[in-house]
Computed example of a mutant assay.
Amino acid sequence: MKNAVRVHAALFVVALIYAANYSISKDVMPRYMGPFGLVLLRIVGAALFFGIVSRIVAPQDRITGRADNLRAIACGLLGIGLNQLLFFSGLNLTSPINASLIQTVAPIVTVLASVVLLGEKLTLPRLLGIGLAGVGAALIILGRGHGPAAAPGQDTMLGNLFILLNATAFGVYLVIVMPLMRKYHPFTVLARIFLVGAVLAVPAGWQQVQQPDYASFPLGIWAAIVYMVVCLTIMAYLLNNWALKYASPSLLGAYIYLQPALAVLIAVSLGKDTLTTAKALQALLIFGGVFLVSRKPKHQPVATAIPLEPVQD
């Protein structure tokens, strides 16, 4: 019982960390730093942390073999580099509520990738769920929204599209990272994929990370940047990977639904966004679709739980 409470507490904290990021990141971008600069700080910081910790907790563990090394490179490019570059670029251009809702399509992409790569069964309810969620996401992406006026230079539709691509990249990553997480120590895998992600993030964000006048940053902006590097990346990954030892896929799915709900509450309470009837209906379409897709076909073994980061994650 104690362990169950700890698992729920860990998953709730992770959901809260991701949900708060939608509003916190908007305080930093684009006024103080561009999205690629934030990605560079986050990925390099995490790469250093996981690289050091992996040498302490699993010093003899190494990813070996051509196939596993190529898989790790693909995971780093899709799940870390492209995932975060697309996410922060999209969040910079769209609203926190839009971004949090669109990211919930990541489990659907995971199912589609499992069908193609792992031969999972695609049932009628899953097809219906994909259609429902697709309609909901399309309405958000194509809608002009009724929230606060967009800042100069923002393009809500393009931002929504980036978030959808971000969710797609992360959904595929969740499938291809499974064999590595089963075979090697999690810190060994995280150290390698963040290192690969850094190779992509450093050239993309180098210019933006040099532009800001750091001496002029208010304390609140420094706190937001520290939050994104320490809490959003390191703490969330640590809690997630610990919870994955005990949590079922259905429980992880329930907490995926919680993230946008928390993101909406935080964004609305801080005045960062407004929840309209149209957005609520679009959210219901997506949640209904994800629910149908997440249901396992009968007589099919339950997949091993895998690390989830909204598709932020």
Rank of each mutant, 00 (worst) to 15 (best):
L70A: 15
L70C: 12
R71K: 10
R71G: 01
R71T: 03
R71E: 03
A72V: 02
A72L: 06
A72G: 11
A72S: 14
A74N: 04
C75T: 06
G76C: 01
G76H: 00
G76K: 00
G76R: 00
L77R: 07
L77V: 15
G79H: 00
I80M: 01
G81H: 02
G81P: 12
L82A: 13
L82N: 01
L82F: 12
N83L: 12
N83G: 09
N83S: 07
Q84W: 03
Q84D: 02
L85Q: 10
L85F: 01
L85E: 00
L86N: 11
L86T: 07
L86F: 15
L86V: 13
L86Y: 12
F87V: 05
F87E: 02
F88K: 00
F88E: 00
F88I: 08
F88Q: 13
F88H: 14
F88A: 06
F88G: 07
S89N: 12
S89W: 14
L91H: 02
L91C: 01
L91R: 01
L93M: 12
L93S: 09
L93G: 05
S95N: 04
S95Y: 05
S95K: 08
S95P: 01
P96D: 05
P96H: 09
I97A: 04
N98V: 01
A99Q: 10
A99W: 14
S100Q: 07
L101T: 02
L101A: 08
V105R: 11
V105C: 10
A106F: 04
A106P: 02
P107Q: 06
P107A: 05
T110E: 01
V111D: 00
V111P: 08
L112H: 11
L112I: 10
L112V: 15
L112M: 15
A113L: 11
A113D: 06
S114R: 11
S114D: 11
S114K: 05
V115T: 13
V116S: 07
V116I: 15
V116N: 09
V116E: 07
V116G: 04
V116C: 08
L117I: 11
L117R: 07
L117A: 09
L117K: 03
L118R: 14
G119W: 09
G119A: 06
G119T: 07
E120I: 12
E120N: 13
K121F: 07
L122R: 12
L124K: 15
L124C: 06
P125H: 05
P125T: 02
P125V: 06
L127I: 14
L127Y: 05
L127M: 12
L127Q: 12
L128C: 09
L128E: 04
